[in-house]
C-alpha cells in the first residue's frame, strides 16, 4: 500500500467523509476514491455500489482483479426530544448499528436513566450542534412537537445535507412547520426533504411502533443515498 493512500484514507475517515481504496491485485497499486469522485466504466459502477452498500469485495474488470474496500463514516442518529418514542428508538438503533444521541433542553426528560442505549444532552439543540456538527452521514429525527426545540435542529440538518431528516407531527402541524421554515430562509427543495409524517407507513400506533417505522425509514434512506 502506498503510504500516501493510508494517509489520505485516514484523513477522510477523521473528517467523516466516505472513502474507498481500490487495490489492483495484479500489480499491487492502490488509490483512494472519495465518494462522488468520477470513475468511469465498470469499475466506476462497482465503486458507486460499494459506496451505497458499504460492502467491500473483489471485482473482475477485464483481465484485472480489484479489491474495493469501502470506509463509510459510522452513521449517527440524532434525535431531538427525549420522549417516549425516543426511548423505544434507542435500543432499536443500537441493534441496527447506529449511534444514537438524544437532545432535549427539558432536563426532566433528558436524563441518562431514561436512555440506557444513548448519549443524552440536556441542552438546546442549537448549542449541542455547534460543538457536534451534523454531516451527510447523520440522520435527524425531530420528535418533540415543539417548534422552539425542533425547528433549529431541522434547519441545521437540512443545511448539513443529512441523509435523513424526519419530523413528527400531523399533516396540519407540518404545513405550519413548512411555513415557518420558509421564513427562516430554506428553499422548497430543502424543505421537501423532510419526512413528515415521520416513519414508514406501517400503520404504527404506539410509541414503540412509531420508533420501528422511523428506524426502517432511516435504513431505507441510508441504503438509497443519492438514488432517486
Amino acid at each position: 500500500m502506498d503510504p500516501l493512500t493510508l494517509k489520505k484514507l485516514n484523513q477522510h475517515r477523521a473528517d467523516r467523509r466516505a472513502a474507498l481504496v481500490v487495490t489492483n491485485l495484479g500489480d499491487g497499486r492502490d488509490r483512494v476514491i472519495e465518494e462522488g469522485d468520477p470513475v468511469e466504466g465498470d469499475l466506476g459502477e462497482a465503486i458507486t455500489k460499494a459506496f451505497l452498500t458499504g460492502k467491500s469485495g473483489l471485482v473482475e474488470i477485464g483481465d484485472s482483479q480489484f479489491f474495493l474496500n469501502a470506509y463509510l463514516p459510522p452513521p449517527r442518529l440524532v434525535v431531538i426530544g427525549a420522549v417516549h418514542i425516543s426511548q423505544a428508538l434507542a435500543p432499536i438503533a443500537a441493534i441496527a448499528g447506529y449511534d444514537l444521541e438524544v437532545i432535549d433542553p427539558r432536563t426532566a426528560f433528558a436524563t441518562p436513566e431514561r436512555f440506557e442505549h444513548a448519549q443524552v444532552f440536556a441542552e438546546w439543540p442549537e448549542d449541542v450542534l455547534k460543538t457536534r456538527p451534523l454531516d451527510a452521514y447523520c440522520a435527524v429525527a425531530a420528535v418533540t412537537h415543539d417548534p422552539k426545540i425542533d425547528d433549529a435542529a431541522l434547519v441545521a440538518a437540512l443545511n448539513a445535507g443529512c441523509f435523513y431528516v424526519g419530523a413528527l407531527g400531523s399533516r396540519k402541524t407540518h404545513a405550519k412547520r413548512v411555513a415557518r421554515l420558509k421564513q427562516s430562509g430554506l428553499d422548497e427543495t430543502q424543505i421537501d426533504q423532510i419526512r413528515a409524517p415521520i416513519g414508514l407507513n406501517i400503520g404504527a400506533a404506539t410509541p414503540a411502533e412509531i420508533a420501528v417505522a422511523i428506524m426502517a425509514q432511516i435504513v431505507e434512506a441510508f441504503r438509497n443515498r443519492g438514488v432517486s
Binding site: M1, P3, L6, K7, L9, N10, R13, A14, L25, S56, G57, L58, F67, N69
Partner: peptide, 26 residues
C-alpha cells in the same frame, strides 16, 4: 479522533517502523 489499526499503522510509519497491512478480501 478515531483510534484503530489504520491510525496505528500511520503512527508506526511516522515513527520510522516498517509496516505491513493484512486485509480480508474474501
Amino acid at each position: 479522533t478515531i483510534k484503530d489499526e489504520l491510525t496505528t499503522a500511520e503512527a508506526w510509519m511516522k515513527a520510522g517502523k516498517e509496516v505491513a497491512i493484512a486485509t480480508v478480501v474474501e
